[in-house]
């Protein structure tokens, strides 16, 4: 039988692996997906905006802000 090309073989390797996964494997994948959703779709967006990227539009403005902050000892 002719051997499938490398990409198809890699695809089959991964899909076969996921299809035949044990129950604990499925459970931890569910946990991983929920965790990533909470982290990136909720925490990152609503609770953890990048302060300097959100509040300043250029690197020059960011530098000025930090310079102001680190030279302000009052």
């Amino acid at each position: 039988m002719e051997k499938a090309n490398i990409f198809i073989r890699i695809w089959r390797f991964y899909t076969g692996g996921f299809k035949n996964m044990s129950s604990w494997g499925r459970q931890v994948w569910i946990i991983i997906l929920i965790k990533l959703f909470i982290m990136f779709a909720i925490l990152k967006i609503f609770f953890f905006p990048d302060f300097l990227k959100t509040n300043f539009s250029t690197d020059e403005e960011r530098s000025s802000h930090v310079l102001e902050e680190i030279t302000n000892t009052k």
Partner: peptide, 25 residues
Amino acid sequence: FAIGVATGIILEFEFGTNWSNYSWF
């Protein structure tokens, strides 16, 4: 491994939000 994976990324979120002076510095 699966439970712990990506838990470290949260530290990077905190750098950008809570420790911005440090992150820039």
